[in-house]
Design a protein around this nucleic acid. Sequence first.
DNA 1: CAACGCAATGAACACGTGTTCAATGAGTCA
DNA 2: TGACTCATTGAACACGTGTTCATTGCGTTG
Lengths: 341, 341
Amino acid sequence: MNKVAKHRNITAQDVADYAGVSRAVVSRALSENGSIAPETKAKVIKAAQELGYQVNFLAQGLNRKRSQLIGVVVARISDPFRSALLEGLISEIQARGYQALITEVQTEQDLADTMRRFSQFRVSGVVVTSGQPPQALVKECVEFKIPVVGINRQLDIPQVDAVYSDNQQGAQLVCEHLITQGCKSFGWLNYKGSTWSGLQRGAAFSQALLEQGLNHRLTNIEAPCDGYEGGQQAAFTLLENQPPIPQGIFCANAQLACGFLDGMRQQGFDAPQNFKLVGFDNTPQTEQWSYQLSTLDQNIDALCKSTLDCLESRTHLPNKPSCSLPIAVQLIERKSSLSLP
Amino acid sequence: MNKVAKHRNITAQDVADYAGVSRAVVSRALSENGSIAPETKAKVIKAAQELGYQVNFLAQGLNRKRSQLIGVVVARISDPFRSALLEGLISEIQARGYQALITEVQTEQDLADTMRRFSQFRVSGVVVTSGQPPQALVKECVEFKIPVVGINRQLDIPQVDAVYSDNQQGAQLVCEHLITQGCKSFGWLNYKGSTWSGLQRGAAFSQALLEQGLNHRLTNIEAPCDGYEGGQQAAFTLLENQPPIPQGIFCANAQLACGFLDGMRQQGFDAPQNFKLVGFDNTPQTEQWSYQLSTLDQNIDALCKSTLDCLESRTHLPNKPSCSLPIAVQLIERKSSLSLP
DNA sequence: CAACGCAATGAACACGTGTTCAATGAGTCA
DNA sequence: TGACTCATTGAACACGTGTTCATTGCGTTG
């Protein structure tokens, strides 16, 4: 463990000198490609360990024209579902030997700057979990062979892959479930200016009801904004003119649903007594005793694995056609949507 | 916007050729150091823009021996407080022109590997929000002039800075508040194998009670694990032998507190009717209608800003003595700890 | 014994930038 | 006009790695 030079980073050259070989041999011994005699390899590896040699990733990336970084675009991490997704992504990225370069974006301009910086770092791939990157920029990435994958969003750009929870299937499950629980009228709660995911879920729910001949019994409830507060306010707005409460309500995400439920409770109504409620995103909070909210569970593990599969396969085949990968969701039945015995 | 070479990254050399100067001049024009004629500078900048030139960060970092990356060590991001802290950190890191390199660690070995990789990327600094990095490795960082800052943890290594919420002050606030609300007996709820923060909070609470001559009225409640479930189970264990419920309970973190409250409710007890409850970490959930939990608000903004201040000042003065920076917390009074009118 | 194939090695180049150092030329002062 | 200062410029080196290409030497076969 005695280092040759204490206050200088030790390089492959130091290892080469120490082992009595050339620097090229060191590179071959450690990078597993190029032919090398087994005993030489062992000698070099031993020398590297004794010196505590670590590859300089910047030099490596510069040479290979590709760093082992993967850029991840996120927004509002503090949202429970998003943080869970981010956690899964980071784990998967690390498990495959990459490092996660995270950027938070708020505006489209942020996103453009971010994508540019990612390319300046020569990232091995980009995962977009939020926002709609400008086509021109994505095309630039494609041109420089940087794979781009979107999670739960539609990018609609050739050679860009998409992984998303199967909203059609989810809406279908919810529709059937609510009908089974005896609901005759329905509500769809989403926030104003919703993302693509939300819109798609709403459309799918409407479609599923149509197939049952029940879509004329569907009321749209619009929250003024996303999140708990949005849902809460929606509950107050809904009851303003004392209309009948839809018997089965499907909600675009878990935070909205929790807020809506609390808003209804504040006005003396509760689920499942007065209405059934199902939300999207099986966040920890929905499971808690105070909520016990039925939800559609997005398979975060599968989403993340598929995302990195896409990334890696496109690294090897940059020009293959775009793939669009729906991941099955699972209905978790809890108290909020079950008929009382 | 017409590029010289479409399918090749354009380099400083391309800009130099295009502007009719040498590559050294391009570097000077864009990096703001070294003397250069104003009109030449303008010419180069114009050329760079027209070509869409972007610096290669890997080459830049290799040359400067320092990338503009900042490594962040996290664990269990999906926890509400941690995700809020991470969000704040990422924002602050970006605001100062760096990029966040995030690594999730589970074991001490993970942490060791992570620190090593960070140094391989020649990061400008490391922020540790979880775990206890091995002294040897941190010393290595210090040796290579990589600043290390810990948030809410005690690293106890020379030349490593610490930023943390002021647990003493927080415990003092809670103690006074509970007494004001009429509490005569007290409880401290923490989980088994708590982190340094939790232990310090408990010790400070006990100390604050001691100063009021009330520490003999303090009961320790131990949850079997962290999180909502841990708190919930603690509530059941507490009531097993039907002892008197402490009148004022202080809880190491918000998730535990929410779980504890729900656990008590399941057994027919509620706050503030049957006991007063205050938690640490003002997470969004504590504010919600179903909980309305009094909490100590950690000033995340200040924590993050101070962290990066420490990092930057140590970059300039690598050998200055360690600094230890407590950040004031604020008591948010909500229903769970207020006497009913 | 000669010719050949093949594994192993090291010299040299490329990756793209920041910075040092010597050279140039214009401007100033005596 | 000649000497001197100083801003500006470009050639060259350093950063640390991966990879190509020519060379070496050994074992094998005819």
